[in-house]
């Protein structure tokens, strides 16, 4: 981190480089996505099931006249406890010209992370390939998993986007 000692990097420059993230929880873990991708946050309700879709695709819902698919990241990430209650929240994100809703356990806050606070993501296991991570955010005693939501939702394994081969 030689950058820290670089006198040309003053506070203003740091400010300019820092990005804002929306922090949400899946079980005990804290994840974060780029806030610019977020369109809105709403409750989980009225989802129409789609037959023969992967289990983490809960179905589609009506978002003011637009049909939006709903993905449950808790199921995708193999969390033990998947419950739907008053706290269950859908984050509606805009990726690749599409609108997709993701189900999470809760939204906690919006954080600003400077480049220094973002560490490279380690090689991960099977459930969440590090391809879909933009890094790990360290904030005092908290660790945020920064998800590259674009890559994740358009990936083959999410089966959200029609692949050219089909």
């Amino acid at each position: 981190m030689t950058n820290l000692t670089n006198p040309s990097l003053d506070a203003a420059a740091l400010e300019a480089q820092s990005r804002e993230f929306l922090v949400f929880s899946l079980g005990e873990e804290e994840y974060a996505i780029d806030i610019l991708k977020v369109q809105e946050i709403r409750g989980y309700e009225n989802v129409t099931r789609i037959a023969n879709a992967p289990d983490f695709i809960k179905g589609v819902t009506n978002l003011r006249g637009v049909i939006v698919p709903i993905v449950d990241l808790r199921i995708k990430f193999h969390l033990d406890k998947v419950e739907y209650g008053g706290q269950t929240v859908v984050i509606v994100v805009n990726v690749a010209d599409r609108v997709v809703g993701i189900v999470v356990d809760g939204v906690s806050d919006v954080m600003t992370l400077t480049p220094e606070q973002i560490k490279p993501a380690p090689e991960f296991g099977v459930t969440l390939s590090s391809d879909f991570l933009s890094g790990l955010g360290s904030l005092e005693d908290r660790m945020l998993v920064l998800v590259d939501i674009d890559k994740l939702l358009t990936s083959d394994e999410m089966a959200l986007v029609e692949q050219a081969s089909e």
Partner: peptide, 17 residues
């Protein structure tokens, strides 16, 4: 008729929503 493919993909057995 609302296109499913706008935000999702083609679903077998389903033409639209």
């Amino acid at each position: 008729v609302k296109n499913l493919e706008t935000n999702y993909r083609k679903v077998p057995g389903v033409s639209a929503a």
